[in-house]
Nucleic acid binder design. Structure first.
Lengths: 347, 347
DNA sequence: CTTTGGCACTCCTGGCTACGGAGTGCTAAT
DNA sequence: ATTAGCACTCCGTAGCCAGGAGTGCCAAAG
């Protein structure tokens, strides 16, 4: 596993091997390359080059007398240095935009729709993290009295209603008191970042208004769940698409994937560090950090609310995936989603 | 496919074939039966009986010299007439109750949890329809002003917050007017069934208060989505469990299942008519109405809010499933879920 | 008339071998 | 440095055979 910089011909051969293997799912032979791509050299020369690429760790041979397939490192080099980035056609862009425009404006539904759309377009498994709300703007809180000792706290942010929490108290609270507290909070916090609404300030308001200390717990719980900080829920769609790929002929491979998707936690860990990136990031094979996922790759793009990333949109497929295409697709969808969210903002 | 009533011995043989096939996933031979179950007759006799059961349409033979497996009709007879109903042990009951008790009280989360639990316990794919809310009691509506022309309508029912709808108007409405309308509606409708809140009465209130006609649309839309009448969302979990079953060795079989689960609509059609039943209903193989699902079965049990069924909880697995066990599991879980929902009721 | 032992027959399964084909690595010539 | 040629390796498949499981039927027994 040395790492000499690749000369131009080696780079081209590596790229064509990736390209060809992605298309055919078969190990790529020297002759295939000379036939399909005009290399201007003989198969024997290509074999020599491929042997060196293998020594360098870019290619592997499934067995002695077979063609070559890319290794993790081979894909990595391809993605980072060799491939031509793709874009979407105007028609595709339009299609994405239109489908999202038709979606219902509820944020959760919008995320679901986006996930399905992306799963369909990529013909892979798509998953999208629900927005992290910390950076939303606080718009309104409303405490509603339901019974003498029960109530509902509703928090509205720039994304829409983002939390509703039932609470129960041990002593009676009047509807008027709840209204008073609601208005006080609205006056004080409206327009602030959600993360700037501090528990201590809520406590101050409550004691100023001479209300039950218990309310503090209820209100902060509601604010808490509006923020829903770590490991937010993840929507997934398109698992069935994976079954088209020859690498899933053996159904067992799918098992761990389905389990991981259902658990969500691992999924989130995989994409978490892509949040700060502003373009598509890719994790290839073992980079996913789990032996079970060793022959998969994930493309991730954050989506935004204004300037700030609030969630991520990912495509999971076999390592043998059309990287440039899927990166374009993810980026395009993220862009449309971001726009859609911006439009839906409550000003 | 005649249908003579089965004599006792035939019935017993059919039952043991089902039992044995469910356990082993292998066609059942005459000798297996005489060995494992004390029939008091020889294999040859059993063979004669099995031949007649095959003529009657209860059994089929995968190939000439193989044992028998049950047909749809065989399973159906088994489920309807032959099998001994099972119950859950006290420990299992307790486990279910405890796991649901720990669940968060948000209704959606509760449904999700229940689905996962059922998927885990049944080692199959579980799915649960979200409650149909028509029969909920209206508790409260709150119209909140967010901007001069935008607002949020929040409807609280006995299940908790069941709808939040953003609305936008073409002319300004004051926060006071919204509060006025909210109180008027609360006074008039609190305690009524959701289905009894008629659009015309809302319109009356609005004109009495001399408010914009536009509000009528906004409010009725919110009431509408609180009711969310037909084909409600469905939570699913445990698809990976199916991969343990030998019938899914071939991954293609899973494809259509995953697609159908994702679509939801077909899933809902399958279970819809089980709503009125008050015990577990079973659909076997072709009874599911789709060639794709021909080797699957579904067990469905409604869950309740008070006396009324509000949703269904189902287990989908290979036709070769332990019916009595899964019916007990589904029924037990439905019962616990119903109780949990009753407890969470907002009085 | 029902039951049963016996037996021939069918069909599946797994292992073995042979073989064609694809593709490489190496060597020697250009 | 490139390449033609060639021997070699390994995979995949087809064909074959033997073993085994299970049936259907017949004829004898209860």
């Amino acid at each position: 596993m040395k790492n000499p910089p690749l000369d131009e011909r080696k780079a081209y051969i590596l790229a064509t091997v990736v390209y060809e293997y992605v298309a055919s799912a078969e190990p790529v032979a020297s002759q295939t390359l000379t036939h399909k791509y005009h290399l201007g050299v003989s198969p024997a020369t290509v074999r020599n080059e491929m042997a060196e690429l293998e020594a360098g760790g870019y290619l592997v041979q499934p067995h002695t007398s077979a063609g070559r397939i890319p290794s993790d490192a081979g894909y990595r080099t391809f993605v980072d240095e060799l491939m031509h980035p793709e874009g979407l056609t105007a028609a595709e862009r339009r299609q994405i935009r239109d489908e999202l425009r038709d979606a219902r404006s509820e944020l959760d539904d919008l995320i679901d729709q986006t996930t399905r759309l992306l799963g369909r377009l990529s013909n892979s498994l798509a998953f999208v993290t629900k927005p992290q709300a910390e950076m939303q703007v606080f718009k309104h809180i409303q405490l509603i009295s339901i019974g003498p000792r029960t109530g509902v706290a509703i928090v509205v942010t720039s994304f829409g209603v983002s939390a509703q929490n039932l609470f129960e108290l041990t002593s009676d609270v009047s509807a008027e008191d709840l209204t008073k507290l609601s208005s006080a909070m609205n006056q004080k916090f409206t327009g602030h970042m959600l993360s700037d609404v501090k528990e201590s300030e809520i406590a101050n308001l409550i004691s100023e208004l001479k209300l039950s200390e218990e309310l503090r717990g209820a209100v902060t719980a509601a604010m808490q769940s509006a923020r829903s900080s770590e490991a937010p829920a993840i929507a997934a769609a398109g698992a069935q698409n994976l079954l088209d790929q020859p690498e899933f002929r053996d159904a067992r491979k799918l098992r761990s994937i389905l389990r991981i998707v259902e658990e969500q936690r691992t999924l989130y860990d995989i994409v978490a560090d892509a949040m700060d990136n502003d373009v598509a990031s890719v994790k290839i094979g073992r980079e996913l950090g789990s032996e079970e996922l060793a022959d998969l790759s994930v493309v991730t793009v954050p989506y935004r609310f204004g300037p700030r990333a609030i969630g991520m949109l990912s495509i999971l497929g076999p390592r043998r995936m059309p990287y440039a295409r899927l990166m374009a697709l993810a980026a395009g969808t993220a862009k449309s989603l971001s726009q859609r969210i911006a439009e839906a903002e409550i000003k």
